[in-house]
Amino acid sequence: MAKNDHGKDPDLGSYRKRLHALQIELVKLQSHTIAHDEKILVIVEGRDAAGKDGAIKRITEHLSPRETRVVALGKPSDRDKTAWYFQRWVAHLPAADEFVLFNRSWYNRAGVEKVMGFCTDDQLREFYETVLPFEQMLIRSGIHLFKYYLDISRDEQKKRMKERRRNPLKQWKISPIDQVAEKKWKEYSAARNDMFTHTHSPLSPWSIVKADDKKLARVNLITDILNRLEYDGKDARMLLSDPQIVFGFDPAYVENGLIAP
């Protein structure tokens, strides 16, 4: 990427400026949410190394920690495995004034659990039969629910996983499941496509975020969230997301390659 005479990346400066402006809008949104007792839930899904952590960090960076929560649950306990599947997430749903982000969610059942054989066919079938009615209950209770899938190419995942293994500050991100992710690319693609087919609906649709470029993914994800909510002082002039970066799911995108095959 070209740099100017001072050795600075002009695109980086533009990114930081836009991100800062969007984060100001997020603070406005949160003030409105608190004033009106609203509840926001953002689900962020995607393959390993898709950039979920970085995107969520930019969303929450300047928000009030008292009313903002990031939920990233570990593997289920023995007790969790015997409980109603959605039960362990219910305790983390937003109450009035709260902005909650799920870094992975109940959609683990349709992704990791399916691909790695951690659930049975009957459990997966039951999940598909119940997840949309469950989400409809949440929406009817007053929760603003948004579902985003960060989509990266196979080459980009390989590059990021290699960087993870090299970088001593990212060692915590490496797990046995991550190491299998590259080998099971096709299986994860098939599971993702089934998930979209079964769980995309007019009431709780999936939005795809093209995430090979992390900076573009972050600013367009934030812009899309802000666009879909009303709040006091909204600066609509700057909330124009790129429809080639963030767009609603359509089955045709699986066939034409708009979603990574």
Score class of each variant (00 low, 15 high):
203 L>W: 10
86 F>V: 02
210 K>Q: 12
6 H>R: 10
155 D>I: 04
26 L>W: 00
61 E>G: 03
73 L>Q: 04
146 F>G: 02
165 R>A: 07
190 A>I: 13
97 D>F: 03
60 T>G: 13
63 L>F: 10
92 H>S: 07
179 Q>G: 02
247 F>Q: 12
143 I>N: 02
201 S>Q: 08
122 D>S: 10
50 A>M: 07
105 S>R: 02
2 A>S: 13
98 E>D: 12
55 A>H: 03
207 S>P: 00
77 S>D: 09
82 T>D: 04
105 S>Q: 01
91 A>N: 07
70 V>T: 13
51 G>K: 01
175 S>V: 02
211 A>N: 09
70 V>L: 05
202 P>R: 15
89 W>Y: 11
110 A>D: 00
108 N>L: 09
89 W>L: 05
126 E>T: 07
156 E>N: 08
188 Y>F: 06
47 R>Q: 08
159 K>F: 09
213 D>P: 15
63 L>W: 07
228 R>Q: 10
133 P>W: 08
20 H>F: 15
26 L>F: 14
236 A>P: 01
8 K>N: 15
201 S>G: 07
2 A>C: 03
227 N>Q: 14
154 R>V: 02
133 P>L: 04
144 H>D: 07
104 R>L: 12
168 P>C: 11
140 R>W: 12
237 R>I: 06
26 L>Y: 02
93 L>I: 08
239 L>K: 09
104 R>D: 05
69 R>Q: 15
83 A>P: 01
14 S>P: 02
84 W>R: 09
129 E>P: 01
31 S>V: 10
146 F>T: 02
95 A>Y: 11
147 K>A: 11
94 P>S: 06
3 K>I: 15
29 L>V: 10
